[in-house]
Amino acid sequence: MAILGIPLVGFVVAPIFRKTTGKWISVGKMTDFEIGKTVTVTVTDPSSLPWAGITAKSALWLRRVSDADFVAFAVNCTHLGCPVRWLQDAELFMCPCHGGVYYSDGTVAAGPPPRPLIRYDVRTVNGQVEVKTMEIPITTTL
């Protein structure tokens, strides 16, 4: 039983323990981003499996707050993970699934989300904006 069971369970759960996040990647030049604007940025997981194809891509919302400051938000609604959309003129993020709404700083404006949008670490290096890759944020509290 153990001869069969241990390798089987180990093989099936192995992807969980594969470290794929926490790498700094460039998302563009600082000059690409306008102050006060929030834009979507596409990143490709640098450690994706070879057959991941298009699913290796992901997105984040990047806002240039001032000349030197950037904030980056996960696109996942903290309610149930659906992709939030940015409405530039309204300056709101809205979620299509259950109607969660967030302000431009990621705080909850309305609806069922239990906490603000999750932020990525952002830094600027030699005129490049870099974000630290992150796992899909999972809300683990009731």
Binding site: T20, T21, L49, W51, T55, A56, E135, I136, I138
Partner: peptide, 14 residues
């Protein structure tokens, strides 16, 4: 959650 995703995000193992 990670068991469902096959890791920490959507990808080849999902």
């Amino acid at each position: 959650a990670q068991f469902i995703l096959g890791g920490t995000s959507i990808g080849g193992a999902t």
